[in-house]
Design a protein around this nucleic acid. Structure first.
Lengths: 188, 188
DNA sequence: ATCCTCATGTAACACGTTACATGATTAC
DNA sequence: GTAATCATGTAACGTGTTACATGAGGAT
């Protein structure tokens, strides 16, 4: 079966960067900064990755870069989305398929082998997890309580999911703590 | 500040494999299979990764491999945890620190740019997400309803977190669908 | 004065996935 | 009997992280 080499589509990260550029021209560094504050909750992109992605986008003709000299700061390259880029972004967005979500938790790996973990350590880990989760949930609540500027209704949707998931994890942590504290086992 | 090159500790994946080997000797392929059914919910490990990790563990002296000839099947190498391996595992488990959890969702990236997504596509994506999430939650409910064999109490804890988080995501999907269906916007 | 952070970017590497390879069973 | 799957494993590649480099500005 000669599977005609399907012209590989760029991965999600590429289009995530392109999406940010659809808000307006930015330098890679600037893109990284806004990615950290927006997408990062469900799609982190490292700084060096952004540089790679804009280069790929430029080769594809989806963005154009322009050197900008600055005063007191290093020169930078500001990228602007092209019409081809806008089209490609919309085609990608109109495709309902997407890779499966991934969740990765080193914390849970340790819990999974909890029978070998000292009881106090386990308690401490769950406690810390509870605190971290609580802080995250509260940060999201604050964001969601603010009046978001128009056009951010969809960002709000993603934050709502984050809040609900965080609350669920928080509930788990609280109940698990009770359960672990109730267990007076002597796992030194 | 000459930061004495801290002897890099192996990553979580290494200890995850070591943890599975603490259950008993296995071949890499066998390890991969049980990883897929247990850890995979919060820590996926690909098949080739397992081969790499057992090699690393062997270099560290944490496991020992033995060639086993089979009848009708290719030979395999069965690895067994050493005493040094048990110690190293326990040291790792007794350390309450862990890397931050990571969640990655291509689905949410598209939702985030939802203002550019055709309304029908968005609806379809959330619907699909709802169905997938529902199936996942029901699978976990089934598992949790079964009597787990003794010694699996901690695996149960991780499954409970998965169930709660899944239920939260499911609730979000249901409500978001209502909201999107209520919005009679003409985003063709 | 010195130190730290910011804004810009590059380079090296580790992690993780996908595709490939192969002979034996099992399914149709 | 042909095809798919399983059990074993390797090789190649792509993704993502961390460390490095550098000059200006701000902090103490």
């Amino acid at each position: 079966m000669i599977a005609d080499k399907v012209s590989d589509r760029p991965p999600t990260t590429t289009f995530a960067v392109l999406g940010l550029l659809s808000w307006g021209p930015r330098s890679p560094y600037g893109l990284w900064q806004i990615a950290e504050q927006s997408l990062a909750h469900f799609w982190t992109i490292s700084k060096s990755q952004v540089y790679g992605e804009v280069a790929r986008l430029e080769e594809l003709g989806y963005v154009e870069g322009e050197e900008v000299a600055q005063d007191g700061l290093p020169d930078k390259t500001v990228f602007r989305i092209t019409e081809a880029g806008e089209s490609a972004l919309d085609v990608w967005l109109a495709d309902p398929s997407h890779e499966p979500d991934r969740f990765r938790s080193g914390f849970l790996v340790k819990v999974f082998f909890g029978h070998r973990v000292p009881h106090q350590t386990l308690l401490q880990m769950v406690q810390t997890y509870e605190e971290e989760t609580r802080r995250g949930v509260e940060a999201l609540r604050t964001v969601l309580d603010m009046d978001l500027p128009p056009g951010f209704e969809y960002a709000r949707l993603t934050a709502q999911l984050g809040k609900r998931v965080g609350e669920a994890a928080l509930g788990w942590a609280v109940d698990t703590l009770k359960e672990l504290e109730g267990a007076k086992e002597r796992t030194p």
